[in-house]
């Protein structure tokens, strides 16, 4: 993976791309959840969060960082909670690790966090076990857990792809509300364009381990500048429109074992590919603050 992206305080960022593009690796790197024996960071890699470079932090102080400055919401809520402990006990453990609260103070804090994610009957809920809750409720408990220590950033790795449309809608609205009210930045990782349209302000598109386009959400949807972004938009079904012809992207993403190739990552599937594309393109900034890694950025007619 070779990618740069920045998230401003309180901003709702999106990171999209197909499976294997490196989205989740990016998320795990931000929390340094990767196995340090098998993951190698480049010599000039840097993940700076609130002024601290996470990669340079010693292993011991990382734990304090996770949960307090940055926290994460995972894809499958049913697997993220421990089935043997009640909801309240699991939330309390987070506070025990990070805060020096008395038992009654931590209960107040837990109840208010659960209320802020719109869960009903919180007094009773903390006594219940994860299997007694629905998927949507579990994911809201996970969101409550993520905001317990008032982090600066929440990394949400496909938090709604295991949920129904109705539960998805609810979780996204709650995350949005919390982000706006408490100025928490969110990095939303997803492959669903609908989620991006509903939730994000800034969108980063990832392909083959690289970020290939960054733009604000309106620009990205109306004027995509990278052929891959345009193809992704064309492949997304729209529930508000009747049947259209689906335009799929031909071929598959290449496997990236071994050395990273020097050509543009999308070259084999791009219908605009030219000889120059065998050199990796530099980032270019178009007007509207849209930055694109394509030799022909702004020159192709890609609108839908």
């Amino acid at each position: 993976m070779h990618a740069s992206l920045n998230v401003k305080a309180g901003q709702r960022n999106g990171l999209i791309g197909e499976s294997g593009s490196g989205k989740s690796v990016m998320a795990r790197s931000i929390l340094k959840l990767d196995d340090h024996r098998t993951t190698i960071y480049g010599t000039n890699s840097c993940i700076e969060l609130d002024g601290t470079d996470i990669l340079k932090l010693p292993e011991k102080s990382i734990g304090k960082f996770r949960g307090e400055t940055v926290s994460m919401v995972f894809q499958n809520p049913m697997h993220s909670l421990n089935p043997s402990f009640t909801v309240g006990a699991q939330l309390r453990r987070v506070l025990m690790a990070h805060r020096n609260y008395s038992r009654s103070d931590s209960k107040i804090k837990i109840l208010s966090a659960l209320k802020s994610v719109d869960l009903p009957g919180v007094e009773e809920l903390i006594q219940r076990y994860p299997h007694e809750l629905s998927g949507g409720q579990c994911q809201r408990v996970m969101v409550a857990m993520a905001i317990l220590c008032e982090p600066k950033l929440i990394v949400a790795d496909e938090p709604t792809s295991a949920l129904d449309v109705t539960a998805q809608d609810k979780v996204l609205q709650i995350l949005k509300k919390l982000s706006v009210e408490n100025k928490i930045a969110v990095l939303m990782i997803t492959h669903d364009m609908g989620v991006v349209a509903q939730f994000c302000e800034i969108v980063n598109v990832m392909y083959g381990g690289r970020i290939i386009e960054t733009a604000d959400v309106k620009t990205l949807f109306t004027k995509p500048a990278h052929p891959y972004t345009a193809a992704l938009l064309a492949a997304t079904p729209d529930p508000s429109k009747p049947k259209k012809v689906f335009n799929s992207i031909p071929g598959l993403q290449e496997s990236r074992t071994g050395k990273m190739s020097s050509s543009c990552a999308f070259i084999k599937r791009c219908k605009f590919a030219q000889p120059i594309c065998s050199h990796a393109p530099e980032f270019r900034t178009l007007n509207d603050g849209q930055s694109v890694a394509c030799h022909f950025a702004g020159e192709l007619s890609l609108s839908k």
Partner: peptide, 19 residues
Amino acid sequence: NAAPIPEPSREAARIKTPL
């Protein structure tokens, strides 16, 4: 109503009545 429309301007303009 709950299904997001993949178009930010139209999605933002919608009145959401969550279930």
